[in-house]
Simulated assay, not measured.
Amino acid sequence: MNVSLPEPMREFVQQRIESGQYASVSDYVRDLIRRDQGIVEDEARWLAELDASIAQGLAELDAGGGEDLHTVCAEIRAEIGLLGPKTVTQ
């Protein structure tokens, strides 16, 4: 596999090698790929957990659990109304 890079990128990679952070260009590229794989795997795991959470919430609603959004909003509005206008004390 061959990869072409513009000169500024080539210089950057070479600096990383010369600093001792990487043994070679291949080592640098492998590290970048590993990091990208980790990001992709983390995103996939997060999305799977989100999907599971949504499915669980929907199942609870179907089973008669949870609270109706309109009811919750009405309760919040009532609580806010009970608080009255805020006053600033000095």
Rank of each mutant, 00 (worst) to 15 (best):
M1G: 12
V3S: 12
S4V: 09
L5H: 06
P6K: 11
M9R: 06
R10D: 15
E11A: 09
Q14T: 14
Q15S: 05
Q15I: 00
E18P: 00
S19K: 09
S19H: 05
G20C: 00
Q21P: 00
Y22H: 08
Y22Q: 02
Y22S: 02
A23W: 04
S24Y: 02
V25C: 00
S26M: 05
D27A: 06
Y28S: 02
Y28A: 03
V29D: 02
R30E: 13
D31V: 05
R34F: 05
R35E: 12
R35H: 14
D36M: 13
G38P: 00
V40Q: 11
E41D: 08
E43V: 09
R45I: 06
W46V: 13
L47C: 00
A48T: 04
E49H: 04
L50H: 13
D51K: 04
A55P: 03
A55D: 12
G57P: 01
G57C: 05
G57W: 03
L58D: 15
E60D: 15
G66I: 05
G66T: 07
E67M: 12
D68L: 14
D68F: 13
L69Y: 11
L69R: 12
H70F: 12
T71H: 08
C73W: 10
C73A: 14
C73K: 11
A74R: 15
I76S: 00
R77W: 01
R77M: 04
E79C: 01
I80Y: 05
I80A: 11
G81M: 07
L82V: 01
L83F: 08
L83Q: 10
L83G: 07
P85D: 12
K86L: 13
K86E: 11
K86Y: 12
T87H: 10
V88A: 14
Q90N: 10
Q90L: 08
Q90F: 07
